[in-house]
């Protein structure tokens, strides 16, 4: 059997084990969802995948580690304040990166063939990875747990289901961000301008929307959300390296496609589903194939339902 793909069922059947995977999957999914929003929003407005978005998330993770180190060097240890500063500085820095990426890699190519913009995006992604590798080193950076503690949710057959404080924190923060962001897009003038550009950028300009500025704003908002995901992952796994953007980026992209690229609720739903798939697959089957599981979903969606679960049916009349 060596060399053959073997998928072994190795899980347990009890409810407790299932619940634990559910908790883990939702946590992971919330993080993927935050990153997926950036893919979907940028795709919606300029019709292309920002392949450097995973790198933005990676930068967010690094900025949070550096911020933490700086704060501890300064002797600041009040945890809520530390977290707040980590989040804000990550969001600030990645916003600047997101804005610059659009200016440097995409805006000059607007109207050029898609392939050109795609190559530019991939180039940007590689450049950012190398930049972080050079400035931060290639080794994994570790961070001591900042938020510890948790609850035992239930116990069954000697298996305890744990819900950590950190998981609660991640879920509450991501839910709040997603609700807030949906409100921003659905109900505010800024959100309407964003949607107008997405639906017909020429008409948007005719009614007075500054399309270039709206596109920049979209990159900045997507980057800020990815930064939050970066901070969460840093807290959750305790390690970052310059390469984490690639896999997380691909998974969040898969999530966006699964949910329906261009759809905001779709990105959130897709993120949660990918997180659940990954958690359950690792728990019940061979963990080595967990990434394959997520990407098989991408292939299946592209073949059978390219518009994704919540993809927009085209309702325009011409």
């Amino acid at each position: 059997m060596r060399g053959k793909l073997r998928i072994i069922f190795r899980g347990r059947f009890d409810l407790a084990y299932f619940f634990q995977q559910l908790i883990n999957g939702l946590t992971l999914g919330a993080i993927y969802g935050l990153i997926a929003i950036g893919y979907t929003m940028v795709y919606g407005i300029i019709g292309m995948i920002n392949f450097a978005h995973g790198e933005i998330y990676m930068l967010g993770a690094f900025v949070s580690v550096v911020t933490y180190l700086v704060l501890s060097a300064l002797g600041l240890s009040y945890i809520p304040l530390v977290l707040l500063v980590m989040l804000l500085s990550s969001m600030l820095f990645t916003s600047i990166y997101g804005w610059s990426i659009e200016r440097i890699a995409y805006r000059p190519l607007r109207g050029a063939p898609r392939l050109a913009a795609l190559i530019s995006a991939i180039g940007m992604s590689i450049a950012l990875q190398n930049y972080v590798q050079l400035t931060q080193g290639a080794r994994v950076k570790a961070l001591a747990p900042i938020i510890s503690g948790g609850f035992t949710v239930m116990e069954q057959n000697g298996f305890t289901v744990r819900l950590s404080t950190l998981q609660i924190f991640i879920m509450i923060l991501t839910t709040a961000l997603m609700v807030g962001f949906s409100y921003l897009i659905d109900k505010t003038p800024l959100g309407r301008q964003q949607r107008a550009c997405e639906q017909d950028s020429t008409m948007a300009a005719l009614v007075g929307v500054n399309v270039d500025r709206t596109i920049s704003t979209t990159f900045v908002l997507g980057a800020a959300l990815a930064a939050v995901a970066g901070v969460m992952v840093t807290l959750y796994y305790g390690v970052v390296d310059f390469y984490i953007g690639f896999l997380a980026g691909m998974k969040a992209f898969t999530a966006a496609v699964l949910g329906g690229i261009g759809s905001l609720p779709g990105a959130m739903l897709g993120g949660i589903l990918i997180g659940l798939i990954e958690a359950f697959w690792s728990a019940y089957f061979t963990i080595e194939y967990k990434d394959v599981a997520a990407f098989s979903i991408l292939v299946l969606v592209l073949i059978f339902r390219p518009t994704g679960l919540l993809g927009k049916p085209e309702i325009e009349k011409v």
Partner: peptide, 9 residues
């Protein structure tokens, strides 16, 4: 021309 209504608004 073509009215260009924002279709999903």
């Amino acid at each position: 021309e073509g009215r260009r209504i924002f279709a999903r608004m």
